[in-house]
Design a protein around this nucleic acid. Structure first.
Length: 474
RNA sequence: GCCCCCAUCGUCUAGAGGCCUAGGACACCUCCCUUUCACGGAGGCGGCAGGGGUUCGAAUCCCCUUGGGGGUACCA
């Protein structure tokens, strides 16, 4: 059987990390099984759906390296088909019109709650006589369409992640609404559970891979598949991504959209790697660092965990650092350059020099944007911070720098400069450490940073060292 | 309330009855490298929620308890 999976985001917000992780699992499964990964834009919530969100979602997926194999299906374009299916269900008696008002339903729920029973619809309009219906219509009452669910119904499926699953019809909340309220002579907007079934069948989806928050929906949808005479796909319910408090990660948890992570300087590779690690574990010997393409050679549900996974910034940061550190200076420089320009740095014409600078600061990067602050003292004239100023003002420091300047060779030479450093420290009566720190303060305006000799060499190549040393002593 | 799911170091996880004195990664701590900060290297701290079974033997199987999560929409 050909594997056909899909991601069905609703464009009511930017691509969310949870949706992206679902996308990753679907994509991984499709690629692993030489199947197809499809997209369906669920834009039937007209109020909240926005084209810019669709764009954001598509761009985010592309950025992550998640490609799709067919033109995305747009759900709103299939409304007529959905309504026809509802009409058929109505005609066959599997669905019916319910004329209950919001207030009635509300009262029903409250009464059951008060009686210590689960709130649910009591199916009171399931068997209305023609006279009763006519009476409601004369009153001008609008109706929703409900799909009948018998209490005696026992629903079973084999979940690819969780194994055998069972659900009872009586726990589904009563006959389910499949079309919104509207005048009783027509059919209102088709609702989620019905539409998903219709569209998944239309797209010939073989495996539905989604978060475990959909488990109850699966029970309802299975009933719909049967009523509609459609073949049900296999289901895999993945664990949820949890926030710091162990609850389902939501938009309210701060940074949760892929575009935000991107803007913060996370690499697509790191995000993909980390999402692959949340809920799935690579086979022994594979290690924790992998690209999605690598993971796609091994992905299977037997290594998908059942418990939710807490989102851990520390781990993500570590992975991102690893990705950055593993990049060639040239590749990294290419990504840094736009950020440097954005920061207003004037870049040297010599890309080789920028490559060397990148190589120097690379190990201290966690996020791409860290490269801005790290490169700043090299690409602009630094303003010494308090600690640097204090050190320069310390006993004998400036005198030693003056002495150093006098002996500095025209052409920077590592060995010669090291030797000179020793001589000068001795002559000036300061420790080598004090001198070195002084040089660092003068050159870079800070007491901490990358390797001093390498930094110095870099600056001297741009003819920047002498002036900075001079500037520090007067 | 009701239904469902889940349960190994602080976090992510390995573990499919003896290989477990429970392994790895992140975080944390110590040391090494180093003028400094990082990076890197070497160590360390730290866990099978509890109770019953089953078995010669249980982190692994079963039951109960506890805890956590999800769902209970005329959203998706």
């Amino acid at each position: 059987m050909t594997v056909r999976v899909r991601l069905a985001p609703s464009p009511t917000g930017p691509l969310h990390i949870g949706t992206a992780r679902t996308a990753v699992f679907n994509w991984l499964y499709a690629r692993r099984n030489k199947g197809r990964f499809l997209l369906r834009i669920e834009d039937t919530d007209k109020e909240r759906s926005k084209p810019e969100f669709t764009r954001n979602i598509l761009e985010g997926l592309r950025w992550l390296g998640i490609d799709w194999d067919e033109e995305p299906v747009v759900q709103s374009a299939r409304g007529a088909l959905h309504r026809q299916a509802i009409a058929d269900l109505l005609a066959s008696g599997k669905a019916y019109r319910c004329y209950c008002s919001e207030a009635e339903l509300e009262a029903m729920r409250n009464a059951r709650k008060a009686a210590g029973q689960p709130p649910r619809y009591d199916n009171r309009h399931r068997h209305l006589t023609a006279d009763q219906e006519a009476a409601f219509q004369r009153e001008g009452r609008e109706a929703v369409v409900r799909f009948a669910i018998d209490d005696s119904e026992e629903i079973h499926w084999h979940d690819l992640v969780r194994g055998p699953m069972a659900w009872s019809g009586r726990d589904l909340g009563g006959d389910m609404v499949i079309a919104r309220r509207c005048p009783a002579d027509s059919i209102g907007d088709p609702l989620y559970n019905l539409v998903v079934v219709l569209d998944d069948a239309f797209m010939d989806i073989s495996h539905v891979i989604r978060g475990e928050d959909h488990i109850a929906n699966t029970a309802k949808q299975l009933l719909l598949y049967r009523a509609l005479g459609l073949k049900a796909p296999s289901f895999a319910h993945t664990p949820l991504i949890l926030n710091r408090d162990g609850r389902k990660l939501s938009k309210r948890d701060g940074v949760t959209s892929i575009s935000d992570f991107q803007a913060m300087g996370y690499t697509a590779e790191a995000i993909g790697n980390y999402m692959g690690l949340l809920g799935w574990s690579p086979p022994q010997g594979m290690g924790e660092r992998f690209t999605l393409v690598e993971a796609s050679r091994h992905f299977d549900f037997d290594r998908v965990n059942r418990a939710g996974a807490r989102f851990d910034w520390d781990k993500l940061n570590w992975i991102n650092g690893q990705v950055l550190h593993g990049q060639s200076s040239t590749a990294l420089r290419a990504q840094l350059e736009p950020l440097w320009r954005q920061a207003g740095f004037t870049l040297a014409a010599d890309p080789a020099w920028l490559d060397r600078l990148t190589g120097l600061i690379s190990p201290s990067l966690t996020l791409l944007k860290d490269g801005v602050d790290q490169a700043r003292p090299f690409l602009t004239t630094p303003e010494p911070d308090q600690a640097a100023r204090d050190h320069l003002a310390s006993e004998g420091c400036r005198a030693a720098l003056r002495l150093l300047l006098e002996g500095l060779p025209d052409r920077f030479d590592d060995a010669a400069v090291r030797a000179l450093l020793g001589q000068v420290a001795k002559a000036a009566g300061v420790s080598r450490g004090v001198l070195m720190k002084g040089v660092r303060a003068a050159l870079l305006g800070s007491l901490q940073g990358p390797d001093l000799m390498a930094s110095w060499a870099l600056l001297s190549q741009r003819g920047e060292d002498r002036g900075r040393l001079l500037g520090a002593i007067d």
